[in-house]
Simulated scan of single mutants.
Amino acid sequence: MPLREHLLELRKRLFLVACGLVVGGVAGWVLYEPLLDALQAPLQVAAQEQDKTIALNFTGMASALDMKVKVALFLGVIVSCPWWLYQLWAFITPGLTRRERHYAFGFLGAAVPLFLGGAALAWWVLPHAVDILAGFVPEGATNFTDAQGYLSFVMRLVLAFGLAFVSPVVLTGLNMSGLLRHETLAKGWRWAVLIAFVFAAVMTPTPDALTMIFVALPICVLYFGALGLAVLHDRRADRKRVAEAL
């Protein structure tokens, strides 16, 4: 596909993703109150356990409205993940045959639970991270956390974990489209493991190594699963290519 057609396809997919986010954002707007309560829960628990004053702070007249819009979009990203994951898949695998495209939809079906699983793991890590970070507040001090800064922290955490869990599906799509061979994945497995553990260490600011290992291992397993699928696909494609050449 020429570069111009790639750019037009990218623009089309981004527009469709934006439409999905708007629809999901409407649901986020409606569910703002319970979602905000859930976001504040780790702060309230840390405040009770450490006997400190820790609360969200809205610093401007419009900050509460900005917070509601951002929370709505945040939930919109989560709710519409099947839609934008499909658009991602459709963009990176435009040249597949009908049979391969049908086979690929099976992997797309795995992307949604993987993203949600990564987001759920981040949600599990969040209270631990808040508790550790709140422990640095000196005795007698008050921690009024900027509401939008806290939301950005939560969003980065959830989306980073979700996308990390989806990355093997993207690698599989690149392999099936002929852009990435299994040999490349096999050569880069050490870097993949290192990146997984560095990511886990950065995103889980807890002092114990067990939590880091618990976060990094699923990412490593998913990477090697993608490698195994790439090996099977490349062998089948190579046999087909040899048969056609005879």
Rank of each mutant, 00 (worst) to 15 (best):
L210T: 08
D234A: 11
S152Y: 12
A201C: 12
V221S: 04
A201W: 05
M212W: 12
A196V: 04
V221N: 08
G149N: 11
L217D: 03
I213A: 15
F165C: 09
L194A: 12
A147R: 05
V198P: 09
K187Q: 04
G173F: 12
R156G: 08
P218K: 10
S177V: 06
T204R: 09
M155E: 14
S167A: 15
F153T: 13
V170L: 14
A209Q: 05
M155Q: 14
G149P: 13
F144G: 00
V198Q: 10
V154N: 02
V231M: 08
L179A: 12
I213T: 14
V198K: 02
R235A: 01
T184R: 05
A216V: 14
S152I: 11
P207K: 00
A201I: 08
R239S: 15
I195S: 02
R190H: 07
P207I: 04
R239K: 15
F197G: 07
G228T: 08
V202G: 02
A237T: 13
E183G: 10
V166Y: 03
E183V: 03
A226H: 07
M155R: 07
C220S: 09
V170Q: 07
F214P: 00
I213Y: 12
L163H: 02
L163A: 15
V198I: 14
L180R: 01
G228Q: 13
T206G: 11
H233V: 14
I213H: 09
M212L: 11
V202C: 01
T145E: 05
L232M: 06
A237P: 00
W191M: 08
L157I: 00
D208I: 09
A141C: 00
L232G: 07
P207W: 02
V221P: 00
N175W: 04
E183Y: 07
M203A: 11
N175E: 00
T206A: 13
F153G: 12
V221Y: 01
W191K: 02
P218G: 10
F161D: 09
L174K: 02
